[in-house]
């Protein structure tokens, strides 16, 4: 509790926001690939689809660990309230990630036919995504808090709204996954990814639309944030840009572009993220604690900041290198069949 002149909270908010964004985008596309895995027509394409993420999924999932621990480090009070409130969705997510993660190593031994671990991979990815969406919905709605603790029951998370966000995220990650597959595959498989991508895009638009209407209706503060003058003038570009991006993504999935579908999907995610941040700012435990109230001791923030500012760019560099090593299309050996 040392008095510090420097306010690290905005910086930590930025770092944690970056971490969450990177997690959602990176693990988002490989969970999405897992969701689409079940829709692949044959074993050969399933193997190829899995190969496209095998070398990188584990690095992507590391951002989840960083997100969890980063929340504990930067905003411990929020961690201590939010995580207990979503006890069961977190449990379901972790167990689903277990099945999906080991499937990479476990299934390849019998990659020529469908095994338990094929289902483990597809269903695990789907369930983990849904659980993350539920966590998001429960978080936006807020929790019953007394003092420094969550005071509700472990089933409070279960509401129509959180179920909606769960389903919406399935389409969202599916969209990213389809974008990735368009980038990494070719031929009939790519055509299939384009079709699935458009399907997901419809779901995403419906999901974003429903959440955008429901949230201000549910919460007067959020309604005021968006619709009062002059906010509405400044904030209007966010939904407008989202609309334009949607059209761009629709055309990209339908056309010949290889990278654009993925980029458009990412942009749509970033805009949604921005929308949520605008709605909730400056709260980290909605309705209850601001970022500043929930922040760690300045001494803790400073000690961790020194290393993070050095390590994060290094991590991004070698992660980028590992993606570079595996750049280009994945191809199956022609002689295999």
């Amino acid at each position: 509790m040392s008095g510090s002149i420097l306010d690290f909270v905005p910086l930590w908010t930025g770092i944690l926001g970056l971490g969450v964004c990177l997690y959602v985008l990176l693990d988002g596309f490989d969970l999405g690939v897992g969701i689409l895995f079940g829709f692949m027509p044959d074993t050969a394409s399933r193997n190829l689809v899995m190969n496209s993420i095998a070398p990188i999924w584990d690095g992507n999932e590391t951002w989840l660990v960083l997100g969890g621990i980063g929340l504990l480090a930067a905003f411990p009070l929020a961690f201590a309230i939010i995580i207990p409130a979503v006890y069961f969705p977190i449990l379901v997510m972790l167990l689903a990630l277990v099945f999906r993660g080991v499937a990479f190593e476990f299934r390849y031994r019998e990659a020529d036919h469908r095994t338990f671990w094929d289902y483990g991979f597809g269903i695990g990815s789907t369930v983990a995504t849904f659980a993350q969406g539920v966590v998001l919905g429960a978080f936006i709605q807020g929790f019953k808090v007394e003092g420094r603790h969550f005071a509700g029951s472990s089933m409070d998370f279960l509401t129509p709204f959180s179920l909606l966000t769960g389903v919406a995220l399935l389409f969202g990650y599916g969209l990213l996954g389809a974008g990735w597959l368009v980038l990494k595959t070719e031929g009939p498989l790519q055509a299939q990814a384009r079709r699935l991508g458009r399907l997901c895009l419809i779901g995403v638009v419906l999901g974003i639309g429903a959440v955008s209407i429901w949230t201000p209706l549910m919460d007067a503060d959020i309604a005021r944030r968006w619709f009062s003058w002059p906010n509405i003038a400044f904030l209007a570009p966010v939904p407008l840009l989202a609309g334009v991006t949607t059209l761009w993504a629709w055309r990209a999935f339908g056309g010949k572009a290889e990278a654009t579908p993925f980029i458009a999907g990412i942009l749509l995610f970033l805009l949604s993220f921005l929308g949520i941040a605008i709605s909730l700012w400056p709260m980290i435990v909605p309705h209850r604690y601001t970022l500043w109230e929930a922040a760690a001791d300045p001494n803790t923030q400073a000690f961790l900041l020194v290393g993070t500012l050095f390590l994060l760019p290094v991590i991004l560099m070698y992660t980028g290198w590992s993606y570079w090593v595996f750049r280009g299309k994945v191809r199956a050996d022609e002689g295999y069949h």
Binding site: T62, V65, L66, L72, A73, A296, T300
Partner: peptide
């Protein structure tokens, strides 16, 4: 958290990635 969280964070930052 104020004491142990940086140690856990440095584990993720220096090791897991």
């Amino acid at each position: 958290a104020n004491v142990i969280s940086p140690l856990l964070s440095y584990e993720a930052l220096t090791a897991f990635f």
